[in-house]
Computed example of a mutant assay.
Amino acid sequence: MNTFKTVPLAIRGLATLLLLSVGLSLANDPRPPAATGEGGWRSAARHSAGIAPDPTALADTAIVQVYAAATYGWRGYFAVHPWIIYKRAGDTAYTRYDVIGWGRGTVVRRNYALPDGLWFGAMPRVLVDHRGAGVEAMIEDIEAAIASYPHADEYRSYPGPNSNTFLAHIGREVPALRLDLPANAIGKDYRPVTRPLGVSPSGSGLQFSLLGLLGLSVGVQEGIELNLLGLNFGLDLNSPGLRLPAIGRIGLDDAVVSHRGAASGP
């Protein structure tokens, strides 16, 4: 008997997608050269990527951006680290927030690194870019969400709570952000067993999840996404594409950009 033929078609399909996504991630190799070079993380580049708008040139414009970059070392093949930056109109510098799993005290860190700094050598990409009208109110909601993060004193890289859990919390609390974390944002689906059902990480849909290990999300931003042991498979209908583990997605760029009455700038 052909054992492969006895395996359910759905399982074979998911296994094929997993192999495809891991293969593409290995081929792209999102890790920086320093990840395998001498000096390790201590010597990895953390300088500005040069992609954040100049806060001085746009001093009169309120701005919110969310970034994500490959995590350090071998984990960079499979997961990303996200963070959020913002400035109010009149400010000439950004405030940055992300969750850091090392060090003492709260894991929620303010201005831990440069606003658009490389994440230990990995180049960040923009997930969200809001500027202009309505962003001041959004910042108020973001700060309230940061203050209400329920896992500020705990951290687990897998399955969470971690840095992706933190950004997912902000996305749920601030749906105007329209944050669509990629499928390889491991930890975004973490929910305590006491609250398995609720709003999806984008704030635009519904989610059922058991500790981020088994669940389903349906929403305007994330489309339909199945979570199996932290590996996410889905179909994005808003910006057509496949949502896959390791590689994140294959398809059209899904970055959210909204410049409402904002001045142009770099």
Rank of each mutant, 00 (worst) to 15 (best):
M1H: 06
N2Y: 07
F4D: 07
V7R: 07
V7W: 04
P8A: 12
P8R: 09
G13R: 07
L14R: 08
T16A: 15
L19P: 01
G23M: 05
L24G: 02
L24N: 00
L24V: 15
L26A: 14
L26G: 04
P30H: 07
R31S: 09
R31Q: 05
P32N: 04
P32L: 03
P33Y: 03
A34G: 05
T36K: 07
E38I: 14
G39E: 02
W41Y: 08
R42L: 06
A44D: 03
A49P: 00
D54N: 15
A57V: 11
A59S: 14
T61S: 11
V64H: 05
Q65L: 14
V66L: 09
A68C: 07
A68V: 14
A69K: 09
G73I: 10
G73H: 02
G73W: 02
G76W: 01
Y77M: 07
Y77W: 06
A79R: 00
P82V: 15
I85V: 15
K87Q: 07
K87P: 00
A89K: 10
A89W: 02
D91H: 12
T92K: 12
A93P: 00
Y97I: 11
Y97Q: 09
D98W: 00
I100S: 10
G105V: 15
V107S: 03
V107Y: 01
V108Y: 01
D116E: 05
G117A: 14
F120T: 13
A122S: 12
R125T: 15
R125M: 06
V128A: 14
D129W: 06
H130I: 13
G132A: 11
G134K: 07
G134C: 08
G134N: 06
D141T: 13
E143P: 03
A145Y: 04
I146S: 12
Y149I: 13
Y149M: 09
Y149H: 08
P150L: 08
A152W: 00
D153E: 09
Y155D: 08
R156A: 14
Y158Q: 09
P159V: 13
G160D: 04
P161G: 12
H169P: 00
H169D: 08
I170G: 01
E173D: 06
R178K: 12
L179W: 03
L179S: 10
N184R: 12
A185W: 01
K188C: 00
K188Q: 12
D189M: 13
Y190Q: 08
R191A: 13
P192Q: 11
P192K: 10
V193E: 02
T194N: 07
R195K: 14
L197T: 13
V199G: 01
S200Q: 01
S202F: 01
L206C: 02
F208W: 11
L210C: 12
L211Y: 03
L211I: 14
G212E: 02
G215I: 07
S217I: 06
E222Q: 09
E222I: 01
G223P: 00
I224K: 02
N227F: 01
L228A: 15
L228C: 10
L229N: 11
G230C: 05
L231N: 07
L231W: 04
L235W: 11
D236V: 14
D236I: 14
N238F: 05
G241Q: 06
A246E: 00
I247F: 04
G248P: 00
G248I: 02
R249E: 05
G251R: 09
L252I: 05
D254I: 08
D254K: 10
A255F: 02
V257W: 03
S258V: 13
S258T: 13
A262T: 11
A263C: 03
A263N: 04
S264G: 04
